[in-house]
Structures are given as structure tokens and as C-alpha cells.
Design a protein around this nucleic acid. Structure first.
Lengths: 194, 194
DNA sequence: ATTCTAACCGACCGTTTGGTCGGTTGCAAA
DNA sequence: TTTGCAACCGACCAAACGGTCGGTTAGAAT
């Protein structure tokens, strides 16, 4: 057979990139087909419709990448320094073009949460999973931190700020504002230590 | 004559609401026309095209409302408490439906910054104006605050977190997560005092 | 009463979109 | 060698989009 799995993988890969750059709605199937060099029939053989394609991209591309990005960060011996290094490195290594694309999770949250329930529940589940990941690892070193901290609250706060700064840099087209927010975020995170 | 100014105003009002709820691209002219009970000819008599309509909505509706919202908050005698009360009140008074719509500025920033230069520069200008508003008012009471604070950095941080929390609540459909982030944000802001 | 024009109407247009479907092709099993 | 079917093709479709334009109407100015 022609390699079915490879075709499917290529579609997911290209779709993930297009959705990241243009958003879900603005991503056209014809553009995906052109980049994959396949026909519309091929795509609809593998996916029921555009929405389902979006779900699979989220589940099989974005979600694993997202966890793979945050998990090592926060499971480091010192999660406080892990987070700070994570954000700082992001500030240093990301190109301006990458930065402007924003975080796929935040982008989809903004665009699709209010439009499609299927996306909404998947995004919410991801947010909660990430929150659990961060808050449990903060709790792990709670004896080094300030007393009376609400770890879940702190975790949502950190992620919100990060997503907000991603959004901010979309309008500035440079890393300056992103860097500023990240610097202050690191200052805040380190303040959590007693 | 039929009241030209009233027609124009109605178009802007309805468009602002539609764009706030659905985003710029997803807002269809036909929907605006239906709600205004006017024809396509009437709309194109007042505005050159959809993009220009969007610009005018931003400049004549969103921008003034945005400044009117933040200015009193931060020009209060104690801007620290002003900000905290502002956020807390938002947490308390906003309905869930309103919350889910998010901040018009942040929404447009996410959707349009990367797509249209005209939107991008307007949004950026607004971000900078807001930053100046907050940072100068923090500087005004700098003797009450921690030493060595970068006020611009702090201001961008606060707005980023606020926008991030707006985004977050889109996926949760309730105020719980928004409240959590806002509570932590107030804790952070009050910590700025020495 | 006539004229002039801003204000408005709505049929029409080209383009793009997601989606359908009858047909073709390649490969593996029988 | 034949058969069967997953994999793929691409012409076609209806709907929706932003935008155009020749025509109509209301009302102020002369």
C-alpha cells in the first residue's frame, strides 16, 4: 500500500504548523493539501472533517509537545529555578518569528473556546493537567516556600502571565516587551521562596 | 435628511458588540446589517470597507472605553489599592457571559496583530499608552514601594497577567479560575509596597 | 415648484470555503 | 491470475463572504 500512516502523519504535521501560524478558522484545507501534495480525497479518507482534524492535531501534536515542554521544567530538583530557567531560556533562544506565533494552547483557547465545545473541553483539560503538574511540584518543595501559599492559585497565575506575555508580543513584533514581562515573572517566582 | 450620524453610531455600536463577541474575521457584515436594519449600501456609504470599519470601532469605541476603565483606577490616591479594588470588583460584578467574551483589546491583539498592520499599530499604541498610564502612577508613589522596581516592567506584567486570566476563563466557562488568578495578582500588587 | 445631492437600497459579482462522491490505482491475499 | 479493498484522486457543489454599482428617495436649498 502507499504508506497510509506517513500520509496521516504529514497531514497532522502540516496542519499543526498552519493552525499555529494562522489559527484554526483561517487555516484552509486547500493550503494544507498543497503543502502535503495530496488531494482532498486523501485528507477526507483520514479525517471526517476539518473539526475532527483539529481535535486530532490538538491531541496528538499540541498536547504531547506541551507536556514534554513543561514537565522536565517543573520536575527539576528545584522547580522554582527550573521555571525561571525555562522562561529565561525561552526569552533567549526563541526567534522573533516564533514568538509572534504565540503558544498554540493559548491561541486555540482564545479562538475556539467560545465557538466549539469539543475544543473547549480539550483545552480546559490541558489547562487543568498543566496546573496539576505545576502545583504538585511546588507542593513538593513547600518547606522551602512562603507559608500559606495556594499552589493551584500560584500555578494558574504563572501560566496566565506567560500566556499574557505571549499575546503582548504579538503586537510589538519584538522581544522587548516579552522579555520585560518574563523578567518580572522570574522575580515573582523567586519571591515565592521564604 | 435621515439621521446620518445616528446610522453611523448604530453601525459602530453593533459592530463593536459583534467583534467583541465573535472576533473581527468571524463578524459578518450581513449580521451587522440585519441587527442595524439597514442595507449594505448604507454601511458602505459610511465606511470604505470592513477593515476601515474595524479601525474606527477600535478608535472610537474600544480605545476610549479602555482608557475610561483604567484611568480612574490608577489615578486614585493609592494606585496599589486602586488596582486591587479594580480587579476585585471585576471579579465580583462581571457576569460569566461577559467574562467569557474577554477583553476586546486582548482579543484583537491575539487575532489581528499578525494579520493586519493597521490593527497591529493601533493595538501596540494602546498597550503603550496603558503602560505609561500605569507606570507613571506607580512612580508617583514610588516612596511607598519597594526600591529598584522597574515600573514599566511591573505595568506590563500586571496587564499581561490580567489578559492571560481573561483568556484562561474562556475555556473554563466559570469565574473560578479567573478569580484565582486575580486573587494572586492582588497579592502580588500589594507585595510591591515596602 | 424645481433642483441637487447626501443617504440609502438591494440585486448582483467573483472568490473562497468546507464538504461530497463516483471513479481510479496500487497492493496483498486467495 | 484474479479478486477485493484501502488509499487516493479531482471535478463538482452549495453556502457564505466582502465588495460593487446603477437606481431610488428624502429633504434642504434655490
Amino acid at each position: 500500500m502507499r504508506d497510509s500512516e506517513q500520509t496521516r502523519h504529514k497531514i497532522l504535521e502540516v496542519s499543526a504548523d498552519e493552525i499555529h501560524k494562522k489559527g484554526f478558522t483561517a487555516t484552509s484545507l486547500s493550503c494544507i493539501l498543497a503543502r502535503c501534495e495530496i488531494s482532498k480525497g486523501a485528507l477526507y479518507h483520514h479525517f471526517a472533517n476539518k473539526m475532527e482534524l483539529g481535535y486530532v492535531v490538538f491531541e496528538e501534536v499540541y498536547a504531547p509537545a506541551f507536556i514534554a515542554l513543561w514537565q522536565p521544567t517543573v520536575e527539576a530538583e528545584d522547580p522554582i529555578e527550573g521555571l525561571c530557567e525555562f522562561f529565561s531560556e525561552m526569552s533567549n533562544t526563541m526567534s522573533c518569528d516564533e514568538l509572534v506565533c504565540g503558544c498554540p494552547l493559548n491561541n486555540l483557547c482564545q479562538e475556539m473556546s467560545g465557538v466549539d465545545e469539543g475544543f473547549r473541553i480539550r483545552i480546559l483539560a490541558m489547562q487543568q493537567q498543566l496546573n496539576l503538574l505545576i502545583s504538585t511540584n511546588l507542593a513538593r518543595v513547600s518547606q522551602q516556600l512562603q507559608p500559606d501559599l495556594d499552589f493551584s492559585q500560584v500555578a494558574y497565575f504563572i501560566v496566565s502571565t506567560f500566556h499574557g506575555s505571549s499575546s503582548l508580543s504579538k503586537s510589538s513584533l519584538n522581544k522587548e516587551l516579552f522579555d520585560k514581562v518574563i523578567k518580572e515573572l522570574c522575580r515573582y517566582i523567586r519571591q515565592l521562596k521564604r
